[in-house]
Design a protein around this nucleic acid. Structure first.
Lengths: 144, 144
DNA sequence: TATAAATAGGATAAAATTATCCGAAATAAA
DNA sequence: TTTATTTCGGATAATTTTATCCTATTTATA
């Protein structure tokens, strides 16, 4: 569904959000340990998230990654996925046709429609806040 | 969403079904031309479909690929996807956790649930027959 | 100002996916 | 039985994704 990079990016964002609630910045090392991902690769993904303004980076001593607390509730899953995998997963054709729409549909276009829209809807309406709060309360988990 | 291989596999199956209705067998060459895919790679995918009993292959002169007509309506998209990409797309964890279920959910487990189930449902209830008939009637397209 | 700690980013490597090539095996028809 | 045609399957190559390494740059503090 998502690329590995995207999976890491989502989990990293959640962890950074949690730490940000506590006023703490985190390093790629701490993040990769917490979400069970390769450290250097995770660092690359964080760069993409910084570029797309999902997370904030502070360079130098006592630096790290963080997200402004009042921004956490405004960030949606869609923004994170888009930053890393693009929008192909919920906007592209299910069978890879370059041109696929109502007038020129691929064989699964109609069948896929509700699935794709459901996915898009879910991504656009799921905030980083709720995901982070569930982890914080022990309702969901970031690894294993 | 699906791998390239899987996209080719679905389109190839549809084309073989259409030709089978006319009592004709088709070659990888004809298939790849019709679905706009690399020929040798498509041939490999066809081997996987043969192994998983989605399509039938007849070796030697006047051979080719075909599907028994009365079998076309019984083949579901899920069987094709499963033969090539496995079931991870609708059974695996959205964030790649090895262990992810109601008792130990990943952060998006609940959010994903309906999307994943919708996808699974769609794949299991869409027959090769309806996809092929729509192509035949010009209601949908295999390329461009 | 010097130092230590941290992200940024380029270069490279490993692994997986996508793609090509070619000979072996099978088979229908001449 | 020979020949032409076709799938099968192994080897290899190209591309993309995943992953690692190392140096440069930034910055807070001593």
């Amino acid at each position: 569904m998502f690329s590995k990079a995207c999976e890491y990016g989502i989990k990293a964002s959640i962890f950074i959000a949690i730490k940000s609630y506590d006023g703490k910045r985190v390093s790629p090392k701490e993040i990769s340990k917490e979400i069970d991902s390769p450290q250097a690769f995770t660092a690359k993904i964080l760069q993409a998230l910084v570029k797309n303004e999902v997370v904030n980076s502070i360079k130098g001593a006592y630096g790290g990654f963080e997200i402004e607390i009042n921004k956490i509730k405004t960030i949606k899953l869609a923004q994170i996925v888009n930053a890393i995998d693009g929008d192909n997963i919920y906007n592209g054709c299910g069978l890879g046709l370059h041109k696929c729409d109502e007038n020129h549909p691929c064989p699964v276009h109609d069948k896929f429609k509700s699935v794709r829209e459901g996915l898009k809807d879910m991504l656009e309406n799921t905030s980083l806040e709720e995901l982070a709060l569930n982890i914080k309360s022990g309702t969901s988990y970031l690894k294993i």
